[in-house]
Design a protein around this nucleic acid. Sequence first.
RNA 1: CGGGGAGUAGCGCAGCGGAAGCGCACCUGCUUUGGGUGCAGGAGGUCGGGGGUUCAAAUCCCCCCUCCCCGACCA
Length: 608
Amino acid sequence: MPNLPPIRMSALFLRTLRDDPADADVASHRLLVRAGYVRRAAPGIFSWLPLGWMVLRNVEGIVREEMNRAGFQEVHFPALLPREPYEATGRWSEYGDNLFRLQDRRGADYLLGPTHEEMFTLLVKDICTSYKDLPLSIYQIQTKYRDEARPRAGLLRGREFVMKDSYSFDLDREGLQASYDAHREAYIRTFDRLGLPYVIVAATSGAMGGSASEEFLAPLDAGEDTFASCPACGYAANTEAVRTAVPGGSASAEAGGAPAAHAEAGGAPAAHAEDTPGTPTIQTLVDELNARVDLQRSDRPWAAADTLKNVLVMLIRPDGTTEPLAIGLPGDRELDLKRLEAQVAPARVTAFGDADFASRPRLVKGYIGPGSLGQARGMRYLVDPRVVDGSAWVTGADVAGRHVIGLVAGRDFRADGTIDAAEVRDGDPCPECGAGLVLRRGIEIGHIFQLGSKYAEALGLAVAGPGGRPVVVTMGSYGIGVSRAVAAIAESTLDDRGLCWPREVAPADVHLVAAGKDRSVAEFADRVAADLSQEGIRVLYDDRSDVSAGVKFKDAELIGVPTVVVVGKGLAGGVVEVRDRPSGATDLVPAAEIARHLVALCRPGLRV
RNA sequence: CGGGGAGUAGCGCAGCGGAAGCGCACCUGCUUUGGGUGCAGGAGGUCGGGGGUUCAAAUCCCCCCUCCCCGACCA
């Protein structure tokens, strides 16, 4: 049995804080600093103290074990990388300001790796020449660098962070699917072991490129992602990837929101333009419609959802060129910029500026209608999927102070296509089953991508196929935010007294407190510490002689080791207290049996 | 990128033209010893950085950096 020396708090490089740090808003950040796990070194960059480093290494260890178990092989790349491979795939420019760039003494460009698709692809190209070398999955656990616009929430979004990234290499789509599934399984095992709650949601691939992708989100309010899930059928997707339920034959499919009463094309009256002075916004338009006796609907008042709002944006492609884009959506919906960016990636989106309007006099701000939009008029026009053929709308007449009423999609105008970029709202219909979606926040702890051949093609990765002819390799990439997982675990387990680690990731199995000045207490606690060490139990031993029992109890709760053992006033009666940190429940255990008792309690979490 | 708030001892904060302070933490001594003991003494500061105004700047002005919150399109 390995002998793990106890960590003696009298000598531990640690200082706990009584007050919350003022700059920490998120609970996990607050407590990780207060309990002496991490300290901020620079914006979004953290130093790890002994306790924090132990937790990080434990999480790493679990991730590594599960990757190895799945048959993936560990490698290690530099963080400091040359420019060329990233130039070849276009990401030197695509990554924009998020890339940390630097130069060597000769002026050659380097970068600090934000992720390593290029390097892995090139290494495999170097080593693998035949289809017999595939399939292959390799991974690393490594420090990544991204110059985030706004680092926040401590470890949750840093500029330097630890990530496990894997890459799979296969001959064909079926192979990729198998590798993808293997990673999915390995991730499920990993997050189960880490004690993290998670939801697997459909995701967009963003700047990474590729097709299918899913995210593992820990459903916690501190997260930055919003996802929708369906309580009826289990559909779950990041809001960026939620498919809009298309209004179909049944009116009930629209239960979630928009009025279903759009006219059917057949009997709809002809569209007519009306003067609607002073109605540049949806609200003023709806008010005007309802105020006008001659325009009133027979069935119900006009609603924002009856109007078609046309929003203009400017796309900026990675090469710097721009393209104006018009998006038509129901007036009660806002355009979700994140969803839009996910749809148009790798292009970025900026607002349509005054100069852009000035150069297109045909566009009347506040009264833009389909009549001035569309590919034929020099501006691509995409509409929300709710704008189905046959639906009638009130929309701009391209003249100041005028709107068209009863404009029917498919009959009176035609868009260049549809786009899923409107905001998703709680209660919107599920695209699979129509039930109301539930929106929640989540922390992205893992992300798996089917990349396809994007990187292999850009970097020339092909192997000889069974017939001798070269076959371009198809790839997947898979990430786990290791340092982020530390924060997510903290976030999901903490309580009002402090941190509360699951045993496998905790810095110790047992937090042993010697409470009281009596020499017998210290002697007995020393022996318990030694006995447990002998058994391979990890012990954090509060042997401080100059600290009161109350301080030790508070520190133990703050630090969050799962089992707290108190050797103190009970010792005279032959008992020691064993407290469960999460529940606070206390057992009195005969002193003579304490070591055996604790070994039995901790064995499941025992690790070399 | 925009708006708001903030940056003073390790942490939390006060001071806002005229000697840099308080609480916690730290050091010394005593006290206390099961829920952040009490008393006394002590150490610790380029007042975020730079520039300016002034006899005098933590304090007023300008620029920059950093942190927190909200926002980012709303036609």
